[in-house]
Design a protein around this nucleic acid. Sequence first.
DNA 1: GGCATTTAAACTGTTGACAGTTGACAGCGA
DNA 2: TCGCTGTCAACTGTCAACAGTTTAAATGCC
Lengths: 231, 231
Amino acid sequence: MSDEAGAALTRDGTFSRRTEVVIREMILDGTIPPGERLNEVALASALGISRGPLREAIQRLAGEGLLTMISHRGAFVRTFEAREIDELYDMRCAYEMYAARLICQRADDEQLAGLESFVADTGLAMDDTNGRYPPDRDFHRRLLALAGNATLERAALDTQDQISLARSMSAKAPTRAKAALGEHEAIVAALRSRDADTAVLLVQEHLEHARRGALAALGFTDDPRKGNETP
Amino acid sequence: MSDEAGAALTRDGTFSRRTEVVIREMILDGTIPPGERLNEVALASALGISRGPLREAIQRLAGEGLLTMISHRGAFVRTFEAREIDELYDMRCAYEMYAARLICQRADDEQLAGLESFVADTGLAMDDTNGRYPPDRDFHRRLLALAGNATLERAALDTQDQISLARSMSAKAPTRAKAALGEHEAIVAALRSRDADTAVLLVQEHLEHARRGALAALGFTDDPRKGNETP
DNA sequence: GGCATTTAAACTGTTGACAGTTGACAGCGA
DNA sequence: TCGCTGTCAACTGTCAACAGTTTAAATGCC
């Protein structure tokens, strides 16, 4: 990333796959902001490859929901309507609520202890974060990993990436760091006592809070299921 | 589909997109069975196009989980281990359990009445189906549509397609048609009375039955979370 | 005859060039 | 000045050919 673009894909593998990860990083970095078009000839020459493998990488990223493709007009970094963000949070709910259920069945105590100490450590480190809470993402990643379902984990991480991209449309940060930490602690406690119903409920409530925070930060004040308004 | 391959993509749109739907149909049809390789030059010439747009279609289908790509070896119609099928049923559970919850909140009585009459009609039509129950797929499609979340619906349908492909690895049909019908009726009843918790539970049980039936039909007898065995 | 090694065919990954489309700009007319 | 039209540059969609890898046959050796 700090390298020049052309040198960024000198490792092994096909150009197509390396290009995919480079562009994904550029999108999630903000190097290419939402709404911006990917000029194929410019991007290909910047990456030192031809348009063929670049286009293949673009197809895959579009399938992941990070790019929007319009016929004869090109690929654009995806932008999100309020409705779409709301739907993505539904997805997160579906994934993580079920993951919590799986964890109660499958995860061993050692794994849960690891998650618990992670929450404790990040709680100590969090003092003057001005409402930001960077470990939140990692907490959810670890949670999903403990469910022991690689398919579910990947799908959920893709959804996380889309939400992350959507949030990058606004510079406003969430302001509920301490609340989020407390909710994480409560979720872990429920998991440790293998209380699936409580864990699922706590995950749902936690994500509902996150949903409202995200929609507010992006300036979507109304109910996204009614009408749309741009910030 | 009944046309020759070359004439199958004469409608409007780009070659790449038309090729994508043609190949998806060929995979789900069984025209190209699981495990078979897609020979790019042969397939491209059969479709009357060049390898470029074909490869782009392949990338997208791989992203959907219908193809497996191996570097320098090509794209293969996906095959599934017991573990992967088990994971896919987890996904279905996550999607449809949450969909049931959303339906209880959002769907209006008219929509639920439509679903109810669909179940009633297919129940009457089902007499001598020898254990097969074709409307099952449509029931779940309708259920997902009523959740009012296009993102969730598409993801769930993709998972359905993957499961359908996995089941095509075996000719054995499920033998629980009447049980499935009864479970559908119970689910609809819970939805109509807006009893979210019951609906979610019934969906989960229904899908657990389907999971066991699928794994048994495919010859996976052991717990897929332990070891693997091929039928 | 069976097995390792070599060789050639087949196929994928990549490239550069061509063709059709889109969007913008200049020019014309009201 | 505003709107319409025709033209043009830029870009995407597509193609055919080249290069490197894999697979399979063919050869040689034990």
